[in-house]
C-alpha cells in the first residue's frame, strides 16, 4: 500500500524533532530512514505507527487518512530493535497474538501461523519460549508477528542492531527476501548506511529533523546533495580538501590540476571544497599529486591507504591488496577528476 506523509511535524517540549517532512512511499517499496542518532528517524517511525501523535501534517495509507487513528486501528506491523517478544508466551502464541486479539477462530490461527512460520523459517521452534532461541530466531519471530495480520506497512526499527556481524548479513538478506516475497511496503529505520544501501529501494537521509535527500542508493552515493550526505554514505568515508579555482586550472592538495570538465562554468566561487572518494584516488588516475603514506590498513581483498599530501591534507585510497608500499613511502598518485564532487562554502553541492 502507498504511504504518504504530508508536512509532518513533531515537537517535544516545543522543540521540533521532525520538521515539516513530506515523504511518499510507493506500494511494495522498501525505504530506509537513515541518519545519525537524534535526527528524528525513530520519531518519524513511531508517528507512522501511532505511538506518537503528529503535531502537524497528515498521514495517508493509500487514500485513507489515518492521522488521528490510534495505533490499534492502523494496520501497521512493527519490528522493534529489541524485538519485544512476549517472554511468557511460546513462539506460537507470540505470532498468534495479533490474531487472538482479533478473535480469529482456532483453525485459522493455526493455519496462518504455520504459513508465516514457514515463510520466516522457524516452523520447528513454535513450542519454545523466546528466551530459548537465538537472536536471529527472535528476529524472525518478531517479523512473523509483525506480518501475520498482513499489515499495510511494515516498520523495522534498527532490526539488525542487536545481532552479531555474521547474523546481521544473513538477516539483512532475509528481511529483503521476506519483504519482496510478501510484497509489503516497508520502512527501515537505521543509522547504518551499509544496511540502508544494500536492501532498500530508496533512502531518505535525515538530519536535524529534515529529509536532506531522498534517492536511490546508487544515485545518492554518486550525487550527494551536500557534504553531509557525501560523508554519511560510503565506507571508508569520503575525504574533503579545499581547492582554488583559476581560469584553466585548480589548485588542490598542493598540486595544480586541470579544471575538470564538470566544473568549467564561470559562475562558480573561487574557493570550493572537493570531495574525493577512496576509490577515485590512486596510481591508476595519474601522478599529479604527491604525498607520503601515513598508514596502511589491510582488509584482505583490499588495502586502505591514508595519504598525507604536501599541503597537509589527508586523502584516503582503496586499492587491490598488494605489498609494494610501506608507511612513510612517498607516492605520486592521481585523482579521477570526472568523479570529483564539488561543494561551496556552505557545504552545498555545486
Amino acid at each position: 500500500m502507498k504511504i504518504e506523509l504530508r508536512n509532518f511535524t513533531k515537537r517535544f517540549d516545543g522543540q521540533a524533532v521532525v520538521d515539516n517532512v513530506s515523504l511518499t512511499i510507493e506500494s511494495g517499496e522498501m525505504i530506509a530512514l537513515l541518519g545519525p542518532s537524534g535526527c528524528g528517524k525513530s520519531t518519524s517511525l513511531f508517528s507512522i505507527c501511532g505511538i506518537h501523535r503528529m503535531d502537524e501534517g497528515q498521514l495517508l495509507f493509500g487514500d485513507k487518512d489515518v492521522t488521528n487513528l490510534p495505533s490499534q486501528k492502523r494496520n501497521v506491523g512493527v519490528v522493534f530493535q529489541n524485538y519485544a517478544l512476549y517472554p511468557h508466551m511460546s513462539i506460537f502464541e507470540n505470532i498468534a497474538f495479533p490474531l487472538v486479539v482479533q478473535k480469529a477462530d482456532r483453525a485459522t490461527i493455526r493455519r496462518k501461523v504455520a504459513d508465516i512460520a514457514e515463510l520466516v523459517q522457524i516452523s520447528d521452534l513454535l513450542e519454545r519460549k523466546p528466551a530459548n532461541i537465538s537472536g536471529g530466531q527472535q528476529q524472525r519471530t518478531a517479523l512473523a508477528r509483525a506480518l501475520i495480520r498482513r499489515p499495510d506497512v511494515l516498520l523495522l526499527d534498527e532490526p539488525l542492531a542487536n545481532l552479531d556481524a555474521k547474523l546481521r548479513l544473513e538477516m539483512r538478506s532475509e528481511i529483503r527476501r521476506i519483504q519482496s516475497e510478501t510484497g509489503i511496503t516497508a520502512i527501515l529505520v537505521t543509522h547504518d548506511q551499509v544496511e540502508a544501501m544494500s536492501i532498500c529501494d530508496r533512502i531518505a537521509l535525515m538530519q536535524k529533523g529534515k529529509v536532506v535527500q531522498l534517492d536511490k542508493p546508487r544515485e545518492m552515493y554518486a550525487n550527494p546533495a551536500n557534504m553531509f550526505v557525501a560523508e554519511f554514505l560510503g565506507n571508508p568515508p569520503i575525504r574533503f580538501m579545499p581547492a582554488e579555482l583559476h581560469e584553466n586550472q585548480m589548485i588542490a592538495g598542493g598540486a595544480a590540476l586541470p579544471r575538470p570538465q564538470h566544473l568549467k562554468q564561470s559562475n562558480l566561487p573561487d574557493k570550493i571544497n572537493l570531495g574525493i572518494r577512496p576509490e577515485h584516488f590512486g596510481p591508476q588516475f595519474g601522478n599529479e599529486i604527491s604525498g607520503h603514506i601515513l598508514a596502511i590498513e589491510t582488509q584482505g581483498r583490499e588495502n586502505l591507504y591514508d595519504v598525507a599530501l604536501s599541503d597537509g591534507g589527508v586523502l584516503c585510497s582503496i586499492q587491490p591488496a598488494n605489498d609494494h608500499l610501506n608507511p612513510g613511502d612517498t607516492i605520486q598518485w592521481g585523482i579521477a577528476s570526472q568523479h570529483l564532487l564539488a561543494f561551496d562554502g556552505q557545504g552545498e553541492r555545486i
Binding site: Q72, Q81, Y86, V101
Partner: peptide
C-alpha cells in the same frame, strides 16, 4: 517491564487494558 512489550501489544491491535 520493557516499554516495547506494551508498544508491540498496541501495534498488534490490543487495547491498553488487554
Amino acid at each position: 517491564v520493557p516499554w516495547e512489550i506494551e508498544m508491540a501489544g498496541v501495534q498488534d491491535g490490543a487495547s491498553r487494558f488487554t
